[in-house]
Every structure is written in structure tokens, then in C-alpha cells.
Design a protein around this nucleic acid. Structure first.
Length: 433
RNA sequence: GACCCCAUCGUCUAGUCUGGUCAGGACGCGAGCUUUUCAAGCUUGCAACGCGGGUUCAAAUCCCGCUGGGGUCGCCA
């Protein structure tokens, strides 16, 4: 006989960003781990905007953070804004004052901290951590301007919102004992704490503006797709085993807070690109088009009423040759506009030898082709090369440069077919004039 | 400086709790196959347990020290 199944109490976690800047990579990873933890446990995920600093908090940052989270696919079950809860913090500060656990200093309210006491907590990721209160000075609860200090509003909210597990960056470890003191002073149940390792830049130093792109929105602009960024981020500090590509949904099923690493990880853009490329490659041209069209339009390379079937052919050609949507623009731009240039370097390497006769013969022969597809263009090309008595390569490479502006790219005949007869002929005939 | 956290290939990591498989995978890099170039794909190579002491028949794994790195020391969050 077994005891009746008692459902484990659902956990409730939160992500509490301050809208004083964009959602950065580190914050996104913290949000992601909290979100995965909630999903893995069938719990709730709360988004709390910590906008107590009226000076530095900006509505546009708040919007940007929420947009970035939505883009990443991190939805929240509850939403709060601390700026709307000042009376609650004030009320709790008054209670502590009345109970003699805090005192006033001017207009500020300060928590008294007893000395020589060990504050212990069992970190979900690091195990037992101990601080002595001799290291902790009295804590400001309410500031002179009437706004709550970070630690205080954070504790009041986590308690009142029923947060069971506080999972945040390692930079908050030393805040934890101070906050535990506040939970105790107010008689609140102390939640479990888990401190995530930080994400470092390539040089091992802290991720900062100097590092380059740090905002999630920067990566979005760079052409990374949410599935790719999320997959990469989840691998920073956590591992599902010998698996690199794992969609968020499946990751949640395997996620365990106990398996989160303790070591800070370096952010590696090369691996991020590779992960992103895996997702792009796995998409159908039709799925990829949904993501690529806005980017191409923004670049002025595509107008309404474009040929969807043609675009899908282009995407099929470039799917395995791009790791970001940005790279599609860079590498396939010549298919969308005649306004592309051949670098001096490429010109010197491939177009230094004048081949006006050869090019015009090829153009003339291609002009006679009815169905301008891969097979027929290839046949014509091979016939011309044979007729001229020159090696394929001697003709292939210069032609590619003339048509695409670059010396690398998809197969030449695939390129011609998708470029179309008109543009192919025009570019061949303009190559040496 | 004080307090706290951390330590496996260049990077992300598996393995550490419950010592015993040539320390495994991935990115990147090198070589090769394929090939009109580039990618993709496939095969393959290089590459790590920071150091020193213990405990043990046996230590990446347990203990101590050192070194190194990181974090925090705001009426910022």
C-alpha cells in the first residue's frame, strides 16, 4: 500500500529586473533559468519590475525588457511594478519601527542588526553558506526620500508574493544574509535561495559595454533567432548531458536547479553562432522566410508583393551558409539589388584578366535558353567552355564574381537560376565595360 | 584590504555527491573525403583534471593549505 499522492507544493519564482537599462545577456539567462525552473516544477513565474529608483528608471527600458522577454519566449504568470507598491513598503517599515526592530535616522528607517551571529542558508546551487553579522551593518529600509531600499522592497515583495525560491545572480550572495535578517524581523518565512554563476566576457572579465553587444535586443538586431539565443544561454551554466541542440520545451523537462554549475562561464559568440546556425538549418524555407522577410524589408531589399516561391528558393540555397539573418543580407544581397560592389581584393584576384569575348559568348548562348534553370544553364556553360577550350575553373570563378560580387557562394548554376536570366545577362555584359 | 564564492582541453561542458571504464561530448582550430568556389555533411588529428600536501591498494573525484579568478562591501538595483 502506498500513501495517497500528495502533490508537491508548487514553486513560485520570479525575475526582478530594474528598468534602468536594456535586458542584457546575464539578466536574460537569469530569467531563463527561473522560467525553466518554474516550468520544470509546474510552478509560477513572476515578473517584477523594480522601478524604485525614480530617477534612473525609464518606461522605454521597461518596455524593452518585456519585449525582449516575449521575444525569447519567456512569458510570465504575474506582473508587478514596485513603484505602485510604495505604501506597502512604508507600512512594513512602520511595523518594524513600532516593534523596535528598526529606528529612524532623519526621514530614513534603518534596521538594527545584532552582532556576532551566524546567518546560514543552504544555497540550492552552492550548498551551505555562512556569514557573520559582524560583517553586516545596520540596513537602510526606507530612504530619506521615502522610497524603499532595494533589499527591503525585494524582501517584502518576495514574501507577500509567495516566492518560494529566489534564483538570482551570484552577485547577490552577500545580499542574502542581510535579507534573511529582514525576513526574520518581519516574521516572514525565508525562501530558498539559489545563486547562479555569472557570465563573463571573452577576457574573463565582467560582461560590459566594452565587450560589445550585451543587450538581448542587440543580438536580435544582429540576426540571431530566439530559439538559438535561448539554446545557447541555457548551456551557460547548465548541461543536459552530451546534447547541444535542445529546444526550450524539451530542456524544461530535463532541467534541474541542482545540476546548475557553480563556475562562471565565458560568453562565446562563435558557439552562439553555431547554435543559431543549427536552428536556421533545421527550418524549412517557409519558416525561415517569416523571420527573413522583415529583415530584408528593413534593409530595403524586399518590397511588398515579392515572389514568395522565389524567396524560398533563395533561402534553401543560403540556409546552410548563414549563421544569422544578418549574414543572409551580407551574402545574398546581390540577389535582391543591383547595387552591390566587388571589393578591390576580389576584383584583383578574379577579374584581373579581361575576358570580354568569353563573357559575351556566354551571355549570347545563355540568352537563347528558354527555361533558365540549373540544368540548362550548366549545359550551356559547359558547352561554351568546351568550345573555348579552357578549363572550367578559368571561367567559373570570374563569372561568379561578375554575378555576385564575391568569389564564394552557392553553386554557380544555382546562383544563375535564382538570379534570373535578365540580371545574369546584364551582369555578364557589364563585367568588362 | 575584509568577507563570500569558484577552479576539467583556448571556450562551453560530462564525470565529483555514491574514489577504480585510454578523462567523454560540443564550439573553434588542423588534415582528409566531396567539389566550379564557399558552406553543409562525413572521417580524422591537436588539446584539460592549477600547485603542494595528506587519506586510500587506488584520487579529477574525499580533507587541508597555497595560488589564481570572480563577487560584495551605496539612503544603485
Amino acid at each position: 500500500m502506498s500513501s495517497p499522492a500528495v502533490p508537491a507544493p508548487a514553486i513560485k519564482v520570479r525575475f526582478a529586473p530594474s528598468p534602468t537599462g536594456y535586458l542584457h545577456i546575464g539578466g536574460a539567462r537569469t530569467a531563463l533559468f527561473n522560467w525553466m525552473y518554474a516550468k520544470a516544477q509546474g510552478g509560477k513565474f513572476v515578473l517584477r519590475v523594480e522601478d524604485t529608483d525614480l530617477e534612473r528608471s525609464k518606461p522605454e527600458y521597461e518596455k524593452e525588457i518585456m519585449d525582449s522577454m516575449a521575444w525569447l519566449g519567456l512569458s510570465w504568470d504575474e506582473l508587478y511594478k514596485q513603484s505602485e507598491r510604495f505604501d506597502i513598503y512604508r507600512e512594513h517599515a512602520e511595523k518594524l519601527l513600532a516593534a523596535g526592530k528598526a529606528f529612524r535616522e532623519g526621514a530614513a528607517v534603518i534596521l538594527k542588526v545584532d552582532k556576532a551571529r551566524d546567518i546560514k542558508f543552504d544555497d540550492l546551487i552552492r550548498g551551505l553558506i555562512v556569514f557573520n553579522t559582524d560583517e553586516i551593518k545596520d540596513q537602510v529600509l526606507m530612504k530619506s526620500d521615502g522610497s524603499p531600499a532595494y533589499s527591503f522592497s525585494c524582501v517584502v515583495d518576495d514574501a507577500l508574493m509567495g516566492i518560494t525560491h529566489v534564483v538570482r545572480g551570484e552577485d547577490h550572495i552577500s545580499n542574502t544574509p542581510k535579507q534573511i535578517l529582514m525576513y526574520e524581523a518581519m516574521g516572514f518565512k525565508v525562501p530558498k535561495f539559489g545563486h547562479l554563476p555569472l557570465i563573463m566576457g571573452t577576457d574573463g572579465a565582467r560582461l560590459s559595454k566594452r565587450f560589445g553587444a550585451v543587450a538581448v535586443s542587440d543580438y536580435r538586431k544582429e540576426g540571431f533567432i530566439p530559439e538559438g539565443l535561448v539554446n545557447y544561454l541555457m548551456l551557460l551554466g547548465w548541461s543536459p548531458g552530451n546534447v547541444e541542440i535542445l529546444p526550450l520545451k524539451n530542456a524544461c523537462e530535463k532541467f534541474s536547479i541542482k545540476k546548475v554549475n557553480k563556475t562562471a562561464a565565458q560568453f562565446n559568440i562563435e558557439k552562439l553562432k553555431w547554435v543559431n546556425a543549427q536552428y536556421i538549418k533545421a527550418m524549412t524555407a517557409k519558416q525561415l522566410a517569416v523571420l527573413a522577410v522583415p529583415v530584408l524589408k528593413e534593409e530595403g531589399l524586399l518590397a511588398d508583393g515579392f515572389d514568395a516561391a522565389w524567396l524560398e528558393r533563395v533561402l534553401d540555397l543560403y540556409k546552410s551558409r548563414m549563421s544569422t539573418l544578418r549574414e543572409l543580407v551580407e551574402r545574398a544581397g546581390f540577389l535582391f539589388t543591383d547595387d552591390f560592389k566587388v571589393s578591390d581584393e576580389v576584383r584583383a584576384a578574379q577579374l584581373s584578366k579581361a575576358m570580354p569575348k568569353e563573357f559575351s559568348l556566354l551571355a549570347d548562348r545563355l540568352e537563347a535558353v528558354e527555361a533558365f534553370d540549373v540544368a540548362s544553364t550548366e549545359k550551356v556553360f559547359r558547352d561554351v567552355v568546351a568550345e573555348l577550350g579552357i578549363p572550367m575553373g578559368e571561367m567559373v570563378h570570374p563569372v561568379r564574381v561578375a554575378l555576385t560580387g564575391d568569389h564564394v557562394g552557392p553553386g554557380l548554376f544555382d546562383t544563375m537560376a535564382v538570379l534570373g536570366k535578365t540580371r545574369t545577362l546584364a551582369r555578364l555584359r557589364a563585367a568588362f565595360v
